[in-house]
Nucleic acid binder design. Structure first.
Lengths: 211, 211
DNA sequence: GATAAAGTAGAACACAAGTTTGCTTTGATT
DNA sequence: AATCAAAGCAAACTTGTGTTCTACTTTATC
C-alpha cells in the first residue's frame, strides 16, 4: 500500500467525516471548499491517486460517487442486524419472529455468521444459569437461527406446547420422548412426549458484555 | 408510522438495493429508469412522501443526497470495528495494538460497548480452556480494552515481563506479589513479583460462534 | 543545476441531476 | 354524475458537479 501525501490524507479524512456527518459522499467542490484547495482539478487529481492506491472507488461522471473501500479500526463498519426479541429462560413467554415486539437490534459480527445466512436469525437475552456448563451465563445474548428441526445434542430454543413455554436446552430425541438437558450439573433433564415439543431455533452464537 | 404506497415501497427497496450495490445513493433519474416510472417528478413526489414519513432524509438541491434512516432486520447496519490481533492463551507471543499484524476486524455490537469508548479496544481469539469457569471457551473471541491497571478479580490480559508471554487470567494483587488465577478448577494459580507483571487490558466482552 | 515527475492553479465546458409548473388521470365520496 | 384530493405525467428550467486543458510550481533524482 503506497503512502498517502499529506493532502491525500486530509482529503480522505474529510470524505470519511463528511460521510459520517451526512450519510452521503461529498462532491469535489465540497472537498475543495472545506479544505481550501484552490481548484477542483487538484481535488480530482488527488482523488484519482486515492483510487489507484485503493482507498476509494469512483464511478465516472456520477455525482458524489465516492465509495470508501478500506475500513480502519475504530470506524464505523457494516454488519447485519437481527432483532432482539426478549428473554429466554425456563418458563418464559414465547418469542417468535414477527409475532413479538422487537426490543432492540443486535449487530452480528461476521465471525459469528455472515450475510445472507442471517435471514432467520434472532437474538434473545438469557436469564438464569441453566446453561453455564455450555459457557452461557445469565445476561448473555444468544443468537438463534430459526429452524424447526434439530439434531441430537444441539442447543435449541424449544417450546413445550401444552405449557406454552420456551426454554433453552440441549435436545435429545429418544424414541417417542424428547429429553431437554440443561447444561448445568445441578439441574436435571426434563422429558416430554416428542409431539409436545416444538423446536424454535438453534443457537448459533453468543455475545456477552462484561462492562 | 404511516403505511407506504406500493410505489413508495418499491422506490425505497430500490434505494436500498442501489446503495448496497454501489456504495452511494441513486439519483432521481436512476430510480425513474430502473422502476420504469414515467417522470422524474413522480419520483421526487414520492421521495418527498418517504421523507415526511421518516424513511429517508434528503438535502435540497444536492445530487444523490438520500440518506436511509430506518434499519430493518437482516439489513446492513453500522457498528464499530476493532482489530483482531491474534491468539491469547497461556504462553503466547505478545499482542500489542499497533505492533502486531491485524488478522481481521471484529464488529462490536452496541450491546457490548458503543461508540467512542472503543478507541482502545482490540480482540483476541482464545486458545485453551483456562477460563471455562468464567464461561470463556476455546475459540471464543474476547474483546479487550487496553488499560495498564486493573482491580482485584478483573479478567485481564497480563504480560509476564521476563518470559515475554501474555496470558488471560483473573488478577489479584497480594502485596508485592500478583496472583494470576485461571478460571478452571483443575488449574492452579500462578504467582509473580508485581514488578514482573504488566496489565495489557481488561476483558470487556465475549463473542462466540457455534456454527 | 538540469531534468523529470508529481503536484497545483484557473477557467471553461458538458452533462448530471434536482426542481418547478401546468396539466391529466385516478379513485374515493356524496 | 359531480366533486375533490391525491397521484401521476411531461417538459422546461436551473443549478450541481465531474471533467478537461493548459500553464505554472514544487519536489525528487542524478
Amino acid at each position: 500500500m503506497s503512502a498517502l501525501s499529506q493532502r491525500q490524507q486530509r482529503i480522505l479524512d474529510h470524505i470519511k467525516d463528511f460521510v459520517r456527518a451526512n450519510g452521503y459522499a461529498p462532491a469535489i467542490r465540497d472537498i475543495q471548499r472545506e479544505l481550501n484547495i484552490s481548484s477542483t482539478s487538484v481535488v480530482a487529481y488527488n482523488l484519482r491517486a486515492l483510487e489507484s492506491k485503493g482507498f476509494i472507488r469512483r464511478s465516472n461522471n456520477i455525482s458524489r460517487a465516492i465509495e470508501l473501500l478500506q475500513q480502519e479500526d475504530g470506524e464505523a463498519g457494516t454488519g447485519t442486524s437481527v432483532p432482539l426479541l426478549g428473554v429466554i429462560a425456563a418458563g418464559q413467554p414465547i418469542p417468535i419472529p414477527g409475532e413479538t415486539e422487537v426490543e432492540d437490534n443486535v449487530l452480528v459480527p461476521e465471525q459469528i455468521a455472515s450475510g445472507d445466512k442471517l435471514k432467520d436469525v434472532y437474538a434473545l437475552r438469557v436469564k438464569g444459569y441453566s446453561m453455564v456448563d455450555a459457557l452461557i451465563g445469565d445476561g448473555d445474548i444468544v443468537l438463534i437461527r430459526y429452524q424447526e428441526t434439530a439434531e441430537n445434542g444441539q442447543m435449541v430454543a424449544a417450546r413445550i406446547r401444552d405449557e406454552n413455554e420456551v426454554t433453552l436446552k440441549r435436545i435429545y430425541w429418544e424414541g417417542n420422548q424428547v429429553r431437554l438437558q440443561p447444561a448445568n450439573v445441578t439441574m436435571d433433564p426434563m422429558y416430554y412426549p416428542a409431539a409436545n415439543v416444538e423446536v424454535q431455533g438453534r443457537v448459533v452464537g453468543v455475545i456477552r458484555s462484561l462492562n
